[in-house]
Nucleic acid binder design. Structure first.
Lengths: 199, 199
DNA sequence: CTTGTTTTGTACTGACCTATCTAAAATGAT
DNA sequence: ATCATTTTAGATAGGTCAGTACAAAACAAG
């Protein structure tokens, strides 16, 4: 019994997420967010109560969609453990070339947020910590599966290997943002997998 | 035949560099820079003509000091190739624990700048590109030395391995900023070296 | 001690920042 | 059609931003 919204909240959230993803938190003004979402200031502040709140929701949404895509790869029972990790790295390279702006990779919002905000925004830090934990769990599962099958080395425990793969992913994203081309990223991924292979 | 400066330009530059390093470019205001350096606005604008210019000089200084320290490790003829790379990774871990603020690692200014500015600041991007090239050259040299001695795998070319090590370093710095402790970083480094080892 | 030059502190400028306020517009329920 | 409620647009507020203007202070050279 009141005026209905003329916009889709999730579409607006996606647009805001993209804006933060491309330019970072500080460099994205509320004016930028209005233009990115197509909403007026009132609508934004009415729906998401502040810039910081909107960022939190955008980050949460990014984590959800990203992890949903990665869990499918890492729990794919059709593949062996190491093949799942290889597929994950391939997916990440693909993502770096899907999400570009002016010929540059925009990287990964969680990595970008770790760099920009983790030290001075406890809420963002807590979200990143939880997200890291779930990603490590997914990785550990795939890695343990590979260790059981014998194609991933059993000389290091799954948690260590998971943290290593996670770090390599972060490094690949930085490399992509630094201008690395596809062949370079693929070579990094291939080399990184050498450390996982059973020998 | 005029009033002399009462401050040391290089000390001021170091202080500014540290401020940018901790908080990033956008989140460091000119007021912050005054407080960090102890200079007044006039002195800052008189010496460094703008915030952006000061940032450029701070970044250049960071790159110089960082690369000077790393070249010593990577060209240490007392060590084999792989030991040099191992020493480099150990040095980087050490650095992550030397440079902290409120219990958080402040990471690496070049990585932070790649994330925050590379896409929209062509000058910073050019500096980062040159810096990457010199770091890859240093790494390649050490890696080639290890390949000649037989302790680094010859199955991948030195350039690929250099890019891999560089990516791992970036990933370790992200991990550190994300809260990884020393043992975790050391385990990542050890695992990463498995991909370099001749087998 | 005067003159010329540079540095320095402080006040200021105009733009942009996040966020709010106000009132008109829109719509479902009665 | 009227009412209650919400969304929306636009103006506004108060603060902070990078950068400048200006005059006082500090010093070296003569």
């Amino acid at each position: 019994m009141a005026r209905p919204r003329t916009f889709d909240e999730e579409r607006a959230l996606d647009a805001a997420m993209h804006a933060f993803w491309v330019n970072g938190y500080e460099a994205t003004s509320t004016q930028d967010l209005c233009e990115a979402t197509g909403l007026g200031r009132s609508s934004i502040y009415n729906t998401f109560s502040s810039k910081h709140d909107l960022f939190r929701r955008a980050l949460a949404r990014y984590m959800e969609t990203m992890n949903a895509a990665q869990i499918e790869i890492l729990e794919d029972v059709e593949r062996t453990g190491i093949e799942r990790v290889r597929a994950l790295l391939a997916r990440i390279i693909e993502g770096e070339f899907e999400h570009r702006e002016d010929g540059h990779s925009i990287g990964c919002l969680t990595v970008n947020t770790t760099v920009e905000l983790a030290a001075r925004d406890p809420e963002a830090a807590a979200m990143l910590e939880r997200d890291l934990a779930t990603r490590l769990t997914m990785l550990r599962t795939a890695i343990r599966s590979g260790q059981r099958d014998g194609d991933i080395t059993a000389e290091r425990d799954a948690q260590t290997l998971a943290r290593y793969v996670n770090a390599v992913i972060g490094g690949m994203r930085i490399s992509a943002q630094g201008g690395a081309d596809r062949a370079t990223l693929e070579a990094i991924a291939d080399t990184a997998l050498d450390a996982l292979a059973a020998r």
